[in-house]
Computed example of a mutant assay.
Amino acid sequence: MKRPTKFLGLAVTAIAATALLAGCGTVGDTGGATAAGSDDGVFRIATVSKVEGISWFEAMRTGVDQFGEDNSGVVEAWQTGPDSGDPAKQVQIVEDLIAQGVDALVVVPNDPQSIAPVLKKARDAGIVVITHEAPALAATESVDYDLEAFDNAEFGEKMFEQLANQMGGKGTFVGEVGSLTSETHMAWYNAGIAYLEKNYPDVTPVSAQPYEDDNDDSKARDNALEILKAYPDLGGFIGTSVSAGANFAAVLKEKNLTNIATSMLSLPSVAGPYLEEGVVRSAQAWNPAGAGYAANAVALAVLQNKAVESGSDLNFEGYNDVTVDGKLITGAAILMIEKGQYPGNKYPF
């Protein structure tokens, strides 16, 4: 059950005016109804992660699965993805899903620009395309919408502000990203560098470009060992992938090093123990499950010709009052992870 190739978008139409989503309504709560003019079949929505088998995207899978359960009988929702961060493997998975005739794709691109042509191909075939962590694609014909958990510049500035404060406003640090082609990782990193130049000019990176780990734990661990050997007087570390932060923290713990400032993307369950032990001093995140759930809610809304507008509720914390600018949807889902935040180490994800 695909959308019509000549789908007119989510403008204010007679359908949108009478839809459940009018004004600040709720997206994704279908009550068992399907779009006017569709058959009685089930919408098939496939979510394609950057890489399967890592904690971040396992958490995202729970949100995708929950969305499927909450909309049982209306959608079939599942997650798949490559076994590594290779953009070519991700493109091939999308090609296969196009051939299978899915109704919608939710994609978290490893390299937004390289995957853009195949996403456009999907839309040309009548498949709804929603991306996450790819805001630049919102200005293209490759997507129906891009969903962001928050303003990416704000997220990066917070991460680097935490690092600078820990370092006392001076010293050198190393940065590590999942990939130099990861739009959001580089957006956070570049926004953070600009923030430091303006506010903490004596906090400087050791190199012009950050390390990259391909969202791979083994590579991230090798990077950590190399960094600590190459920079014995290092003052701080920034990690924009979960693999970067988790493996750097693990190596710090093994070497009993607690004098290096750390600020990183993580999950409560990953960073929490290190925060409690004093190995890590700052971590932040957004709930991957929420991103998976909310992105699927947007996909279903498009399939059902329902409006997604500023103020719409995507039925998950952090996405209850989204901002919509053209095809860019932004939530307010920044989560700061702090020591003592989860008594008894009862981490939500």
Score class of each variant (00 low, 15 high):
A289G: 08
K306M: 09
A301M: 11
G290L: 03
L275F: 10
A283M: 06
L314D: 12
A271W: 00
Y293D: 10
Y274F: 13
N315E: 08
V270Q: 03
N320K: 09
D313N: 14
A307D: 11
Y319F: 14
Y293Q: 13
F316I: 15
V302Y: 09
D313R: 10
A297L: 06
P288M: 08
V308M: 13
L300F: 03
G311E: 05
Y274K: 00
Q304K: 15
L303P: 02
V308I: 15
L303V: 05
E309A: 14
E309Y: 05
G278K: 04
S310M: 00
N305M: 14
D313M: 11
A285M: 12
F316D: 08
E309C: 15
G290A: 08
Y319I: 03
L314W: 10
G311F: 01
V270A: 05
G318K: 07
A289Q: 02
N296C: 15
A291N: 07
A271C: 07
V298F: 14
V322Y: 12
D313F: 05
L303T: 08
L275R: 00
V298C: 14
L303A: 11
V322S: 14
E277F: 04
N296Q: 10
Y274V: 01
A291F: 04
Y274R: 00
P273S: 07
F316K: 09
N315W: 02
A307F: 09
L300N: 06
A301N: 09
A307P: 09
A283D: 05
A297K: 08
Y293F: 07
E277L: 15
A301V: 06
V302W: 08
A294N: 15
Q284N: 09
N305R: 13
A283F: 06
A271M: 00
P268A: 11
V280S: 04
A285E: 07
Q304S: 15
A271G: 01
P268R: 02
Q304P: 04
L303E: 02
V270K: 02
D313P: 07
T323S: 13
P273I: 00
N296S: 15
A307H: 07
N296W: 13
E276D: 12
N287V: 04
N296D: 15
E309K: 12
A299V: 12
W286P: 13
V322G: 14
Q284D: 10
E317T: 11
Y319C: 15
V280A: 14
V322K: 10
G311T: 03
L300M: 07
A299H: 06
G278T: 00
Y319V: 15
K306N: 13
S269P: 05
Y319M: 12
V308A: 13
N315P: 05
G318S: 07
Y319H: 14
V322A: 14
Y274H: 01
S282Q: 08
P288Q: 12
N287W: 00
T323N: 15
Y319T: 07
A271P: 00
Q304N: 10
L314M: 13
A289S: 06
P273Y: 01
D313I: 09
F316Y: 10
V279K: 01
P268L: 12
A291W: 05
P268Y: 09
V308E: 04
A295S: 14
F316S: 10
Y319P: 09
W286S: 13
N320F: 06
